[in-house]
Design a protein around this nucleic acid. Structure first.
Lengths: 198, 198, 198, 198
DNA sequence: ACATACGGGACGACCCGTTCAT
DNA sequence: ATGAACGGGTCGTCCCGTATGT
């Protein structure tokens, strides 16, 4: 199938990304052998590596894709919606987020590749959080990055849990996260801090 | 040293576990090749596989060890203390926790091995959470497993972050977690739930 | 350009041969991947394999071309000229000669392809050597094929050396080769053969 | 076979080197796949790469070995003996010499590895050539390195030829080489330089 | 108890050449 | 006539675990 249209190329790329996403999600980065990628995409090595330089590149593309998708979900439907989607709709999406974080710890040039993407979506992130603070939905005693960070932490922690078989009640997690982020009553006045509480 | 005492055996095992922990933390499960395990422990293949059936077994032992240690930390010094330790003191400990979670998703017989351990330490876990609820430190409108789960989620999420280079302010995370777990003011009276809040 | 002239075809072939020669010279036969051939020729796979059946065919063509060129050089300017050209002018030409020899040892059907070419240029070769002998420049106590063989051996050996970085003094080699090929004084009269001389 | 004596290790290494030498000779460097190396040595990948870091290392070792052996042959039995051995006795030895030269052109760190060896054997080389000059066997109008270089060139060139099926008469080559290296009558007096001689 | 030798499976990368749409 | 898409083979490397000693 030579000399094809741009649509065809895009479609193929998307096709491969989709299959790769499933494979990475199911087996993890190392476990997603090229053979499994072939199987998942229904394409041959030749085809896959014609579109992506190598496995690492392919994974980067998947990671970028997934992260973008998840952030889009959040800025559209809110944290609750994003967490629900995370936990129920698309388990594949989840695992890739984790792998992403893990690789960020060890793979130097992967870090750089992701940083670009993150810089790109960061503004939307900020806007959304500031809006939430402005509308009174989120607390204002902490800067937005702290809130964002916490939300991310919970997201990743939840993602890590999902699929373990342990049925996690997402709604409760949503509620607890919400309770942490919403405006708080004045501390210290109501409660007295004591020993080993938290 | 043909005739060895039990102490010697235990010491060797502990020695290997320590080295293996570092290796697994530094390189991840797949990245921790036997060669690296040899290097990290200062022992040879022969020694390592004399004390542990195989790499998987070794990792299981490390995972159990680390998890037990972390739970001990929590039941002693509280969540805040545990999180601080997580973020600052021992990054190696952290990474293993994550690997543990990841393997729980895919490795069937690893799941079983961990379940035993978890069953073993679960009582202490429960007691501690119930104590917190009884003392008024933790909210009572949710059952303790929900609180425990959330705490675990935050822990894992934080662990995932630590070491990425991204300097996360642990104290803020501790505060937010605390705000989520402590008794909450009556909902709905103060705020009206609306659209995309969380 | 649907309707092409013969000249165009020839030009393209020559173009490809030139690029391929450089690639083969630079990377060796196995190292000259199709990608590199594309790069060196500036043409695509499609173009290249439209004019040549495959990589092996392409190499054969290059080899024939180069050998013919070198022999032409020799019959025109003499051995000295050819050796000088070899060592200084065109290192790419050199390397291909070697690859040719190497493939002659292992590749059966490549042998046949080259034999034809050799048969074709052999007469010129013979004529030239016989002329040298007739003019008193070359010795007559050995048949011309022996002289030709020795010249070829020196040529190949020199080619092998060139490009190693080791600066070889071509003029000395030329002189030594000349001394071997020119008419010799009666042996034995002047020197007495002894032990480990050569 | 664990914890073995040094002799065993040496024997195994020699065993592998021998097999590898044959494989490299028969198939060339690229053609000598690991599978073929296994076959030739009768050992498994595991064994082979336990003793040598990788294929490149293995080849280096073989090259060093062969070169040392050949130089030994020459300093003992003279050039004639060495050339004869080259052409008849051990064709495997031959091909490796060529591969060595070829790799010297392209592989940077291989160059360095060989340089050490060469430096090591160079003294013997020099001594032998100087002895030949002193005894009147070799000409004195050229420095010994020039003679050595020419001898090497002829050696390599001959090696390149051997095995091509083309039956080369070694004795004639020996004679021609000898004629080039032995003391020459005064040039110019006897012969007049003319046009395209050599 | 501990170390080394070794087997052999598997993996990621790459590469060549055919097919087929322009 | 050109060149992109793609198949599928193969290669070197690495790695785990067992066998075999000291």
């Amino acid at each position: 199938v030579p000399k094809v249209t741009q649509e065809h190329v895009d479609a193929r790329r998307a096709e491969i990304l989709e299959g790769a996403r499933q494979a990475f999600a199911k087996y993890g980065y190392e476990g997603a052998t090229v053979a499994r990628l072939e199987e998942a995409t229904g394409l041959s090595r030749g085809a896959i590596f014609h579109y992506f330089r190598g496995k690492k590149d392919l994974f980067s593309a998947v990671a970028v894709d997934v992260n973008r998708r998840y952030i889009g979900l959040m800025t559209t439907g809110g944290l609750a919606e994003a967490l629900r989607a995370l936990a129920t709709e698309d388990p594949a999406l989840v695992a890739v987020l984790i792998e992403t974080q893990l690789r960020l710890r060890r793979d130097e040039d992967f870090v750089q590749r992701m940083e670009e993407t993150m810089r790109e979506v960061a503004p939307a992130f900020e806007t959304w959080f500031e809006d939430q603070r402005a509308s009174g939905a989120f607390r204002t005693d902490l800067e937005w990055p702290h809130l964002a960070r916490f939300a991310t932490i919970v997201t990743n922690g939840l993602a890590l849990r999902v699929g373990t078989g342990d049925e996690t009640d997402v709604e409760t997690v949503v509620q607890l996260l919400d309770d942490a982020l919403r405006p708080q009553p004045e501390r210290g006045a109501v409660r007295k801090r004591r020993g080993a509480r938290a």
